[in-house]
Amino acid sequence: MRKWTYILLFTLLAGTQLKGQDIVQQALMHLQNNELESAKELVDKAIQLDLYNQKATTWFYYGYVYKELYKANDVGNINSTNLETASNAYLKALEMDNNHPERNNNILGINYLAIQYYNIAGTILNQATFNVNIDTNIINKAITNYARYKELKKISEPNFNNTERDISFYYQLGSAYHLKYDSSKFADKKSGKYAELYFGKVLELDNNNVSALYNVGIIYYNEAVDIINTLDYDEDLEKLNKSLDYSIELFLKALPYMKKAYELEPKRKETIVGLSYIYLSLNDNEKSEQFRKELKMLEANE
């Protein structure tokens, strides 16, 4: 066991006000000997007894043992119950007594666990951004883990500014759902709506986020194209008329996002292609051609 853990355990043992063969004290001694399972059995027992469970420090030690179990067995495990038990116990300790003797360690422990939740959310989303077949329940786990990260971080570092992390998180969520939507050839409308929602959240936090602007534009564009692409040649003219109206509405919705992305990054090729096709779909051939030429010039200068 690491040097710091020894120091901590020493401090904890010295700091405990319990006497003799106190169960919690015993648990900590087992922990010191790296006997995690025995330590767990003892804290599990202690937490059931009123003699112990009325004390904030017991909950802290209980959380501490589970945190060690998590570190030993579960780091990176998205289904870790040890992580959940540890964080609940740490929170309970603070809730019972916000000034208990181990408060500082309690806060540090919460911060450690917050980072674990953050990492789990990140790991899931990193996978989801490249794996179209990832289950939405797994993506939802990223959402709950990230929410838990924020809840704990608010306690461990109340003034921490999460904006950058929120932007990254929502962007990756949007990308994960966008990938699912695209890979379903736009049949998975629910994923399309989620992608739109999360890219929208990115833009609420950073309205000049070029990638999010482009993606929202593309989602509307693809939705409109899909309406037309899936039309049967047999389609009744009246229905065709309605489909056209709706697709135009979507192309017009896509346009300001793509235009803003272009204004912010005029040399980004996919945005120029996007504008060219949106204008083409809006039957504005002149503007479509203008962007097509711009793309050619850009490619010629590469």
């Binding site: 990938l179 993606n215 593309i218 697709s247 292609v273 779909s281």
Partner: peptide
């Protein structure tokens, strides 16, 4: 982003 445009509607 995963997919861009490319279809003459």
């Amino acid at each position: 982003p995963p997919q861009g445009p490319g279809y003459d509607t």
